[in-house]
């Protein structure tokens, strides 16, 4: 009796194993044939789709990291830096717009310089930098009879332009005179020079040089 029972159990287990084996085999055959069919279809027609295109196409994160020239882990820090930069630039833009409006209005209401005789002009940029001062001074080179002294108190710099028709006056000498009075130094050529000094003394020094040119050399202010 027990022996018969044991034989039955053994046969049942063998049957389960055979069924399991053939089901597994059937699934394996089906899957592998589908894949080989797809493989042939791709080889004869459309291009093979690399697995990476479907499963590991560069993620948005990776693409962003590439754009930022950074590792994915560095992205938050880079974005924070970019955000800071945008905020700083926006603030600078607002300041520049305000300064531009103020100067435009001042220029409109100021008496026109006597362009047909030697004249001297002082331009003060309260928040300006050397780049700003240089840009204005270079523009002033078109003024053939003018001496233009631009002070930029943002970084304590200055630029001087001397018109090409003004004999006996050199930009580097005037720049050194202004910078020297403001506790700094300067250098450059006969028509264009730059320098720097103490920010809070630059305007006063520039006006002092302007007054000397008016009083001693007959420049119009």
């Amino acid at each position: 009796m027990i022996r018969n029972r044991f034989t039955e159990l053994l046969l049942a287990a063998a049957l389960v194993a055979v069924v399991w084996y053939y089901r597994r085999r059937e699934r394996s055959v089906r899957e592998s044939l589908i894949l080989s069919q797809e493989w042939d279809a791709a080889a004869t027609g459309e291009a093979h789709a690399p697995a990476s295109a479907a499963t590991s196409d560069p993620s948005t994160l990776t693409q962003v990291a590439d754009l930022l020239d950074a590792q994915p882990a560095e992205i938050p820090e880079r974005i924070e830096g970019l955000d800071r930069k945008v905020r700083t630039l926006t603030t600078d833009l607002e300041k520049a717009r305000s300064a531009w409006a103020e100067r435009w209005w001042s220029a409109l209401t100021a008496p026109a310089p006597a362009l047909d005789e030697p004249h001297v002009t002082v331009v003060d940029l309260a928040d300006g930098s050397l780049d700003d001062a240089e840009a204005i001074a270079k523009q002033a080179l078109d003024d053939a009879l003018g001496v233009t002294i631009v002070t930029a108190r943002g970084d304590g710099s200055l630029a001087v332009a001397v018109g090409s028709d003004l004999d006996g006056h050199r930009a580097d000498e005037i720049a050194r005179e202004v910078a020297g009075a403001a506790g700094g130094g300067a250098g450059g050529g006969p028509e264009f020079a730059t320098g720097g000094g103490e920010s809070d003394q630059l305007v006063e020094a520039a006006r002092s040089v302007r007054d000397r040119l008016v009083n001693e050399a007959g420049f119009a202010a």
């Binding site: 394996s28 055959v29 899957e31 592998s32 044939l33 894949l35 080989s36 069919q37 797809e38 493989w39 042939d40 791709a42 080889a43 004869t44 291009a47 093979h48 690399p50 697995a51 990476s52």
Partner: peptide, 23 residues
């Protein structure tokens, strides 16, 4: 072992199954 770049075809009809192994 084959790769997509070879363009070799005819495996399925010849009775081959396939296993993807990478890239």
């Amino acid at each position: 072992k084959d790769a997509g770049w070879t363009g070799l075809a005819g495996y399925n009809a010849a009775g081959y199954g396939a296993v993807r192994t990478g890239e």
